[in-house]
Design a protein around this nucleic acid. Structure first.
Lengths: 352, 352
DNA sequence: TCTTAGCACTCTCGATGGGAGAGTGCTAAC
DNA sequence: GTTAGCACTCTCCCATCGAGAGTGCTAAGA
């Protein structure tokens, strides 16, 4: 069974049971309220069997270990990045989604008309709604794109719509102005012939095959090769995001500067790829907390990413972005659930 | 020639030349600085040939007419919604986009692979970039969707990918599990036959034709009818938006409450349709200023919408949303330019 | 009659300064 | 090891105040 959480793995200290309990309570409380957590409030709210003075001693110890900080002398405690990391690695109870929620989301996917762009959009909006964070969903990236079917549909005299179906069921289309003007019947025959000869071929093979063709056929083959090559590269602008309103609502982004940078990052599809996680295994979830993120605008944010896909080379990523004060259990549960859903869909499309 | 600007047309007062000049200067200045405009600053900045006291008298008169206000006694003047309306109707010099900008945007569209979803996305991002506002772009809505070509591509034994090309070049796809298991050759023949018999038919006709078919063919015909019907309805979730970061940067949205409602409106595709303008003519631009908007969250915003399309029944909308303090000349110019570009593309795809 | 200088008045904005409240750290007793 | 008690610190809110900006008004000038 793969390690469920990946990401940085700094050396984490060993804690006594009571310290673990208190750390967990602090993080839970801070996630819920966004306010520094006071010793007295902990005792009251979590019915701890010790006094607030004892809790204060433990809090000081946890701060010594780097798991908590203070904004100022007379404020309560706030988790550090390391504190969150500890929480995720060894304190968090993996609360999955409610069965009811799971049913609702699955149901929506089933109704989504089996259109892959629709699935991506739905995944983004489901994740955003489930987690109340911003979500990011990429299409399937990488792997070999091979041709399953090609068709040239006449639009005007010399203009055809090229429709290429890829293995995996993705459909790419492109309008093409031809040098010569084949009849509809010729076009149909050409589509059938090219489908027969190029079926299963990868972009390089198809590009090479273009030399065997002349005129319209050559044009079409070149275009098909390019469409497939692009599909293989995964087009950066096909990334979907949703839930910007959720992060606007977070109190830590009230001021407005930080948040603008984050939204800019989400909207700039060319920069989005910098945000994707290193390769992770199926069903594994990657978490990057605060300063663990390379990108400066995300230094007060956390990412939770999962992957979906069928093979080991054809993967897409789905994830959420939010403040470091994030409900990690829920985010991880949601990412994992939606990821599995997407993987199932891919498997169905690719034929088990 | 159609009226270029549509929207509410309240009775607008007649103004003396100097008042017009001063009103124009106030609005220009406020659009540029977002600060209430003082009489002294106007004289200095716009080299008015009168003293600040005279300007103050005129400002008081303009305020009397409802075209300006002040936030408090000792603050400069701020345009009212009516003031902006007056500006747009009779003061604004229609500054179009720079030739350089026009070339850049046209060029991007030409490189966009002739894929209609790509065009929509590009239109949204171009508008956002040109205007520094948030943009909204809908696909073509309404009109009759007729079939141009249909193909069933085998994916697995009983599973096919249905690809329907519509008049206008839109491509719809759907995965379909068939009752029986036709051979690839049978599927190809079926596609050719259905294309021949159903070409040019509308959804209702196609749905009726389903009764003439049996088994897989009937299933396919039903699915095609539904795909076309959906295309005709225009799917609400196909709306694209971009440039949220731009409105986050506006000083009037600093506080964060208003802006959240606006972003929520943009992200909720089901509510987006409430935002679309009443029917407007080609090349006409619709402007709604502040309280003229029905939707409460937009009471401090303005919309500038244009339409694109080929006929009078097949239209799509493109527009920008920003604070009432918006560079209307630029927004209107950008919306009109991108709208024309989109219309041209539609005409090309539909075959002149 | 229109324009303008002068001036009092008003309002915002930023700095200043308690005072209340919350929460900690420490100490000493249990 | 735990806890009560207490001094100390820091934030936050509010009131105050002066500077600055800008207006409205008045009266004089063109």
């Amino acid at each position: 069974m793969p390690k469920p959480i990946s990401g940085l793995h700094p050396a984490l200290p060993a804690l006594a049971d009571r310290q673990r309990e208190i750390l967990r309570a602090v993080i839970r409380e801070f996630i819920a309220t966004a306010q520094p957590v006071a010793s007295g409030a902990l005792v009251r709210r979590y019915r701890l069997p010790v006094s607030s003075a004892t809790v204060r001693n433990e809090l000081a110890a946890l701060e010594e270990l780097g798991l908590l900080t203070h904004p100022h002398t007379s404020a309560g405690r706030v988790p550090t990045d390391l504190g969150y990391r500890f929480f995720i690695e060894s304190l968090m109870s993996g609360a999955a989604l409610q069965p009811q929620e799971q049913v609702t989301v699955s149901h929506q996917f089933q109704q989504a008309h089996q259109d892959s762009a629709e699935w991506l959009r739905l995944a983004a909006s489901s994740l955003a709604r489930l987690t109340a964070e911003a979500s990011i969903v990429t299409p399937l990236i990488g792997g070999r794109s091979t041709l399953k079917h090609v068709e040239a549909v006449p639009i005007q005299e010399r203009r055809v719509l090229l429709v290429a179906v890829l293995d995996g069921g993705a459909v790419r289309q492109q309008l093409l102005d031809l040098e010569d003007a084949p009849t509809p019947d010729e076009l149909r025959a050409l589509g059938a012939r090219l489908t027969a000869t190029l079926r299963g071929a990868d972009p390089a093979t198809i590009a090479a095959a273009a030399h065997m063709e002349r005129g319209a056929a050559a044009q079409i083959v070149v275009a098909v090769a390019r469409l497939l090559a692009e599909a293989e590269a995964g087009r950066a602008h096909d990334v979907y995001y949703d839930g910007i309103q959720n992060i606007l609502a977070q109190p830590e982004f009230g001021k407005g500067r930080r948040i603008r940078e984050m939204v800019a990052l989400l909207e700039d599809r060319t920069r989005l790829s910098e945000l994707l996680p290193p390769p992770i295994r199926e069903d594994e979830v990657y978490v990057a907390i605060g300063m663990e993120n390379r990108l400066e605008p995300l230094h007060e944010c956390s990412l939770v990413f999962g992957r979906y896909g069928a093979g080991s080379h054809v993967v897409g990523y789905i994830g959420v972005v939010g403040p470091t004060r994030m409900d990690y259990a829920r985010s991880i549960g949601a990412v994992r659930f939606v990821g599995r859903l997407m993987s199932d869909l891919v498997r169905v499309v690719e034929g088990n």
